[in-house]
Every structure is written in structure tokens, then in C-alpha cells.
């Protein structure tokens, strides 16, 4: 049997591109507060009054931005904020969860905020949980944390591999909406890791140091290490729940091609969200991160434009189970797959 040659653009490199995207977003979250401080110095017109350290910082930032701006105090306002809410060349972009949370807290729609979350919402309808895999600054740290877990495993410290019910995060979302309505506070702002990370980096760099959100984030990292791999994203993240709901009927999906699959389970191991790509178990939780595509040795996973997943298509045609069974047709889907 020959492997059908199904290739698409950058198939092997999508996961690297994703890391590039995550790294760029994270670097932006580090750079923007520094630019804010630089703008503060520039607006004060008091270079001579700065200390030696501040002068070095000023010179560095000036060197970085001088080719692009004539007036740093004004021009550098073009890109501001975090992934939670920000301004990008005059257009305000916000996280859909911020609009949902504010709607729950205040009970009233503020249409400019809805306009700001429009593009992320539409993108989530098309691409599903892509924010979690490709943009979220907390994901960047959580994935590094997963790598740390692998290293710890090698020296004998076993990270937690518990499986909880992934529907828990929808309950977190619902409870958060109820609590926001009851207290009149946008509670998601304090427990949503990308909002916390962006804000705490800003506090640490431009203001008086980390706030308590850093402690909260450290607790989620420990949860991931001690309880479940990527546990917060999978079981507790309210934003992930919202994106999962938005992406339920997403149009861009990863699907398995059984004709070139050999049932090697590498995709299942690579999937940070504990999904089951080898048995076509993607669902609304899949964040299109392409780690399974990068891990697949036979190129049996590909992007397709369709609004629903395939049911289990049977064992891969290159694998042993397929050759052993008489017809090679679709057998029952194994009962142990899926949950968690």
C-alpha cells in the first residue's frame, strides 16, 4: 500500500510557526510595558535628570524605536495593551470573554466593546480554540511548563497525570457569569490566565512589581505540574470554555486520514489537551495547535474545511490491527478513548 501524497503548505513546520507566534506575542507583552516607560521618559523631556540605568534603558529603547518614529510620545501609542484588551493602530481588540464578563457584571451592552471583540469572535467561529494554541501568552508558559514536567520526569519526579472531567470548565464559565452578575465585578479578569499574564508583566516592568495575579498564575502552573498536564487550560479555564463553545462548529479542523495512519499513538502523546487524534477524537476542545500534525510520522493528519468531525474511521491502514481484521472495515470505537 502506498501512502497517498497529501501535502499542504508548511505541513511539517506549522508547529514551529505556532511557537513563533506564541513567542512573538509574549515578546510583545514584554516590550510594550518597556515602551510605555520609555514614552514616559520621552514625554518628560528630562533625559539629563535620569539615573545612569535609566539613561541606558532610554538609549536602548531609543535605538529600537528611532527608525520607526519621530515622536515616541505619540507614535508609540499605535500598539498598546495585552491580549485581554488592546489597541492596534486605532482599532480596539478585546477578548470575547471580557465582553461576556462585562455583560454579566453590568447587565448592559456597551457596543464599542462588542465591536472590539467582533474579529476574535468571528475568528473563533472559523478556527475554534486557535487563540489557546497560537496566541495565548499563558499557553506559552504552560507549554514550557509541560517541557519542564518532561525533564522532571527524567530525573524521577513524576508530574501529575490525573484526568478530570473536561466539562468542568464550562461549569467554571457558568459559575463565573453567575458570580459576576451577583457581585457586579468582572471576575474573569482575575482568573483568566492570559489576562493575568499580560497584566502582571505590565505591573512588573512598568509599575511597582508583580501583583497577586502572579501568585495565582504560579498556582495554576503548579496545578499543571502536580495534578494534570495542561490541567488549567483543559479543566478550569473559563476563556477556553468560551472558545470551545464558539469553535464547536468551526470550519477549519484537523482530521485523520486512515489510509496513511499506522496507529502509532504519537499524536495522542503529543496532544497537550489529552485528546485522541488517533481515533478521530478531536471535538470542540481541539485548539488547532498542529502538534499532532508535526508528530505524525506518516502525514496522516491534515487540515480540512468542514464543520464536523469524522466519527471513528477504524484503525489506520498501515497498522497491524487493520491488517489482522478480516474486512478492514470500521470496527467499534474503543471504549477507553476520549474522556478527559
Amino acid at each position: 500500500m502506498t501512502t497517498p501524497s497529501r501535502t499542504f503548505l508548511l505541513r511539517r513546520h506549522l508547529n514551529k510557526l505556532r511557537w513563533l507566534s506564541l513567542g512573538l506575542v509574549f515578546a510583545m507583552l514584554l516590550l510594550l510595558p518597556m515602551l510605555s516607560v520609555y514614552q514616559n521618559y520621552a514625554a518628560a523631556h528630562a533625559y539629563d535628570l535620569l539615573s545612569a540605568d535609566e539613561k541606558a534603558f532610554y538609549d536602548l529603547m531609543h535605538g529600537l524605536t528611532a527608525p520607526f518614529t519621530a515622536d515616541p510620545a505619540e507614535d508609540l501609542d499605535a500598539i498598546k495593551g495585552t491580549t485581554w484588551a488592546g489597541r492596534f493602530f486605532g482599532y480596539k481588540i478585546g477578548d470575547p470573554l471580557s465582553a461576556v464578563g462585562q455583560l454579566a457584571a453590568g447587565g448592559a451592552l456597551y457596543w464599542p466593546l462588542l465591536f472590539a471583540v467582533l474579529i476574535p469572535t468571528l475568528a473563533s467561529l472559523l478556527f475554534g480554540r486557535f487563540f489557546c494554541g497560537w496566541i495565548c501568552p499563558a499557553s506559552f508558559l504552560y507549554e514550557l511548563n509541560t517541557g519542564l514536567g518532561v525533564w522532571l520526569d527524567r530525573i524521577g519526579l513524576r508530574p501529575g497525570r490525573r484526568r478530570l472531567d473536561r466539562r468542568l470548565k464550562y461549569l467554571v464559565l457558568a459559575v463565573g457569569l453567575g458570580l459576576s452578575a451577583a457581585t457586579g465585578t468582572v471576575l474573569f479578569a482575575a482568573i483568566y490566565p492570559p489576562a493575568v499574564v499580560g497584566r502582571e508583566l505590565y505591573y512588573a516592568i512598568a509599575l511597582n512589581g508583580f501583583g497577586t495575579g502572579a501568585v495565582f498564575f504560579a498556582a495554576t502552573v503548579l496545578f499543571d505540574l502536580l495534578v494534570a498536564r495542561r490541567g488549567f487550560c483543559r479543566y478550569l479555564c473559563a476563556g477556553g470554555a468560551l472558545y470551545s463553545l464558539l469553535g464547536r462548529y468551526r470550519l477549519l479542523r484537523i482530521q485523520r486520514v486512515p489510509a496513511s495512519c499506522n496507529d502509532c499513538t504519537k499524536c495522542n502523546v503529543a496532544c497537550e489537551f489529552g485528546l485522541d487524534p488517533m481515533r478521530d477524537g478531536f471535538g470542540q476542545e481541539c485548539n488547532n495547535c498542529t502538534a499532532c500534525i508535526a508528530a505524525c510520522p506518516t502525514d496522516a493528519l491534515e487540515f480540512r474545511i468542514t464543520w464536523h468531525d469524522q466519527p471513528y474511521q477504524g484503525p489506520g491502514h498501515l497498522g497491524r490491527r487493520y491488517r489482522r481484521q478480516p474486512g478492514g472495515d470500521t470496527p467499534e470505537r474503543p471504549a477507553d478513548g476520549g474522556e478527559g
Binding site: S36, A44, G94, G107, V186, A195, R199
Partner: peptide
């Protein structure tokens, strides 16, 4: 109720 805690106001504030 209205504030989502994004911190953008401080980030653009010239005197910080």
C-alpha cells in the same frame, strides 16, 4: 461593573 482591568489606561498615561 464597567472596568475589565486591562490596564490600557496606565499604559498610555504619559506621566504614568
Amino acid at each position: 461593573q464597567a472596568c475589565i482591568g486591562c490596564g490600557n489606561c496606565a499604559e498610555v498615561c504619559p506621566p504614568r
